[in-house]
Computed example of a mutant assay.
Amino acid sequence: MSTPTADLAAAGVSIWLDDLSRTRISSGNLAELIETRNVVGVTTNPTIFANAITDKNNTSYDAQVTELAASGATAEEAVFAATTQDVAAALDVFRPVWEKSGHVDGRVSIEVSPDLAHDTEGTVASAKELWAKVDRPNLLVKIPATKAGLPAITEAIASGISVNVTLIFSLERYAEVIDAYLTGLERAHSADFDLSSIHSVASFFVSRVDTETDKRLSAIGTDEAEALKSKAGLANARLAYELFEQKFAEKRAQDLIKLGANAQRPLWASTGVKDPALPDTLYVTELVAKDVVNTMPEKTLEATFDHGVVSGDTITGGYEEAREVFAGLAALGIDFTDVTQVLEDEGVSKFIDSWHDLLTQVAEALEAQR
């Protein structure tokens, strides 16, 4: 019998889990999800690691914290050691998937320090340090799509580093991300890198778009506003996929692909449904097309496996309807450029807060061992 996650994979969607912990790896749970839920990758972020490392019921980091405390490590050094160890171990679990997929999937992402979101040079240095430390060909280094992040993406790609571009909310910024990627590939080719070894995904956030837009629609309160609720996130993602199709069909991208380069796949992030009135698989089953990644919290993954209905491509036929959604929002006075800027600022801020919370708690754990 086929399962909804198997159907999703057959439709061209790569299922990645938006979570990682040392226990998940050591218990065999990650391998089980690969086998039973068609999971072919993992994404991480500071919040995920903060939850894993500071979980009072999780003792899997205790021995390493004791060792790091004895060596005099700082909180930053301890977090770097713990997270890179986890990611390297997960990458080893995914190595057969990486091989079987022709090096497309079997990927695990690790993020540069959120404190560097507006520091181009610092981001590049952090990306190179993470790439060298983890030392696995199926790694993706996460770089945020801030203005300062764009040249860092180019520099990382030009250096042969595979990149997960994160925190993309607007089509305008997505176009800049694609340009940054292609520019990096052009520079990598000039430096004689093997372009086929460089991979990238562009992480387009979905549910947060609805959360912010719906808040503004509620403030308007008309029937027209109510009718547009919970539509902006899907519309935005569908138009992002249209842009992906257009940009990678153009001569510039095709010339690089002929040289062995890979298209930068769209990745749907923030796919957990925030509004309990909505179907819990909405941002999965309504965003199906070939060559996309959907990274899901475990709750969303299990909901999809249990009762997701995969009915083939639910993106490419919806471009005009998506444009109508944005026309309706504009008619109501919703400034979508402001929506996406607020979301980018909030996204960076949330990751910084999680990062500092993690550093504080690790510092306390280190101090307790000294």
Rank of each mutant, 00 (worst) to 15 (best):
T3K: 09
A10V: 04
A11Y: 07
L17Q: 14
L17F: 12
I25A: 08
G28W: 12
E32S: 14
L33E: 10
E35F: 09
E35H: 15
N38K: 13
V42L: 13
T44E: 06
A52E: 05
D55Q: 12
V65F: 15
T66C: 08
L68T: 05
G72Q: 08
A75Q: 09
A78G: 10
V79H: 01
F80P: 00
A90C: 07
A90S: 04
V93Y: 05
P96Q: 09
V97W: 05
E99V: 15
E99H: 07
K100F: 07
R107G: 02
V108G: 05
E111W: 03
A117V: 10
D119Y: 08
K128C: 02
P144M: 04
G149S: 05
A152Y: 08
A152E: 10
E155D: 14
S159R: 06
I161F: 07
S162Y: 03
L171K: 11
E172T: 13
E172A: 15
Y174S: 02
A175I: 07
A175S: 14
V177F: 12
V177T: 09
L182N: 08
L182G: 04
A188C: 14
F193R: 07
H199T: 11
H199G: 08
S200M: 09
V201M: 03
A202V: 05
F205N: 00
V206Y: 06
R208K: 13
V209R: 00
T213C: 07
L217R: 02
E226W: 01
E226F: 12
S230H: 11
K231C: 02
A237R: 00
A249M: 09
K251Q: 14
R252L: 12
R252A: 10
Q254W: 11
I257V: 15
K258V: 11
K258R: 14
A263P: 09
S270Y: 04
G272H: 06
D275G: 04
D275L: 07
D291I: 07
V293C: 11
V293Q: 09
P297S: 10
E302N: 14
H307A: 15
H307V: 07
G308W: 01
V309L: 14
G317D: 12
G318M: 06
E320N: 10
A322H: 01
V325C: 04
F326R: 01
F326C: 07
I334W: 01
T337I: 08
L343C: 04
L343A: 04
G347Y: 01
I352V: 15
D353S: 14
D353I: 02
L358T: 02
L359F: 04
L359G: 03
A365N: 08
